[in-house]
Computed example of a mutant assay.
Amino acid sequence: MTTLEIRVLGPPTLHLNGQVCTVRSHKALALLCVLAMLREQSVESLRAWDKAIGAAQAVNTPGLIPVVQALKTLVLMERGVHEGNDKNVRDSEALCAATLPVTEASGEQFAYTLLVTLQGRLAAWRGDVQAGLRRGWQGVKQAFDTQNGMVVQLALPLLMALLAEAGRTEDAGLLIGYALHGLDTTAWLRTRAWRTQETLSDGESGDGRVYPPGEPPIITQVLRVLQSRPWAEDRP
Rank of each mutant, 00 (worst) to 15 (best):
E204S: 11
V152E: 02
L180K: 10
R168W: 02
I176R: 01
G149M: 11
G173C: 09
V151W: 00
L180V: 10
N148C: 11
T169H: 10
A164K: 03
V151A: 10
E198F: 00
A161G: 05
R192S: 07
E215C: 13
Q153D: 13
E215Q: 14
G173Y: 07
V152K: 08
L174F: 09
L163K: 09
N148L: 15
E215Y: 13
L174G: 06
P216R: 04
L158V: 13
R192E: 11
L183G: 04
A172V: 08
R209C: 04
T169W: 10
Q153T: 01
E204Q: 14
D145L: 12
L154P: 02
F144G: 09
W188S: 08
W194S: 10
L162H: 01
P157A: 14
G173P: 04
R192A: 01
Y178K: 03
G206M: 05
S201I: 03
L163F: 14
A155P: 12
G177R: 02
D202T: 11
A155I: 08
V152W: 00
V151T: 13
A161V: 00
L174I: 04
G182D: 03
A164C: 10
L180C: 13
R209M: 07
P213Y: 04
R209P: 01
N148S: 03
L156K: 01
L158Y: 03
G206C: 12
F144C: 14
E215W: 13
M160W: 00
G206N: 09
V151Y: 06
T185W: 08
G206E: 07
E204W: 07
P157N: 12
A155F: 11
G173W: 02
Y178I: 02
G182F: 09
E198W: 00
P213F: 07
E198G: 13
L189I: 07
R168Q: 15
I176F: 00
R192N: 14
Q197T: 00
T169C: 08
L159T: 04
D184P: 05
A164R: 14
V210E: 07
E198A: 09
P216L: 03
G182W: 05
D145C: 07
Q147A: 15
L200F: 01
V151C: 02
P212S: 05
L163G: 07
Q197V: 00
P216Y: 04
P217C: 02
T186K: 05
D171W: 04
Q197E: 02
W194T: 06
G206Q: 11
L158A: 03
F144E: 15
G173R: 07
R168S: 06
E204I: 04
M160S: 01
N148D: 15
L200D: 06
A172R: 02
G208P: 12
A161S: 13
S205K: 01
D184N: 12
Y211S: 14
P217I: 05
H181C: 07
T196H: 01
A187Q: 14
L183M: 11
P213D: 06
P217K: 09
T196C: 14
Q147M: 12
P217N: 03
A193D: 02
R192M: 01
Q197I: 00
G214A: 06
G182T: 06
R190E: 13
H181P: 00
V151R: 07
